[in-house]
C-alpha cells in the first residue's frame, strides 16, 4: 500500500513534468520540468530496487544533461523572446495521433501475460553490475569510452566559436 502511494507521488513528478514540458511556451520552464521528470525517474528506480541506477540518473541527467540543456538555452537566448507560438503545423495531427498511439500500445502490451517472477533479489546488485560491466559487457564498456571521446571531439569542434580563432570576433 505504502509503495503504491510512493509510486503515485513519483508518477505525479514524472508525468506532471512531462505534461509541463509540452504545455509551457517558455523553454527555460521546459528544462526545469525536464529535471522534475528526471528526479521522478530516479524515484522509480529506487522503487524497482535499482538504487545505483537512481543515483546514475540523478548524476548524469539532472547533474549533467539538464545543466547542459540550460546552458544551451541561455546561450541561444534570443529566440526565446519571440512571441510566436512554439509549435509547428503538425500540432493537430500529433494531438490526434499521440493518444491513439498511447491506447494502441497499451492495448497491445497489456494483452501479453508477462512471465513475472516473484523471486526476491538476492546478492549485491552493485557487485553484479561491476562484474557484468567487465565480464559479458566488456566490449560495450570499452566502446562507450570511445563513443564519449568521439562525442567530446565532435562537440568541441562544433561548439567552438570559429571566429575567435581567426581573431574576427567583435
Amino acid at each position: 500500500m505504502a509503495e503504491q502511494i510512493v509510486f503515485f507521488i513519483f508518477t505525479i513528478l514524472v508525468l506532471g513534468g512531462g505534461i509541463g514540458i509540452i504545455s509551457t511556451k517558455n523553454l527555460y520552464y521546459s528544462a526545469l520540468f525536464l529535471s522534475m521528470t528526471l528526479s521522478g525517474m530516479a524515484g522509480y528506480f529506487v522503487l524497482l530496487n535499482a538504487g545505483f541506477l537512481a543515483a546514475v540518473q540523478v548524476v548524469v541527467y539532472v547533474g549533467a544533461i539538464a545543466i547542459l540543456i540550460l546552458f544551451a538555452i541561455m546561450l541561444s537566448r534570443r529566440m526565446m523572446t519571440s512571441s510566436e507560438p512554439q509549435t509547428n503545423r503538425q500540432t493537430w495531427l500529433a494531438a490526434i495521433v499521440s493518444p491513439l498511439l498511447f491506447i494502441a500500445i497499451l492495448v497491445l502490451v497489456l494483452q501479453v501475460n508477462w512471465p513475472v517472477s516473484s523471486a526476491a533479489p538476492t546478492g549485491d546488485a552493485l557487485i553484479l553490475l561491476g562484474m557484468s560491466f567487465l565480464g559479458s559487457y566488456v566490449i560495450p564498456f570499452e566502446v562507450i569510452s570511445v563513443l564519449l571521446l568521439v562525442a567530446l571531439v565532435g562537440a568541441i569542434i562544433l561548439a567552438r566559436d570559429t571566429h575567435t580563432d581567426t581573431g574576427r570576433e567583435q
Binding site: 526545469l32 529535471s35 528526479s39 530516479a42 538504487g51 545505483f52 537512481a54 543515483a55 540523478v58 548524476v59 539532472v62 547533474g63 549533467a64 539538464a66 545543466i67 540550460l70 549485491d124 552493485l126
Partner: peptide
Amino acid sequence: DLNIGIFYIVAVGSFGVLGILM
C-alpha cells in the same frame, strides 16, 4: 547505510548545482 553511499553524495550534490543555476 546505502550500498551506494559515496555515489549518493555525488548525486545529491547535483541538485545544489541546479538550485544555483535556477
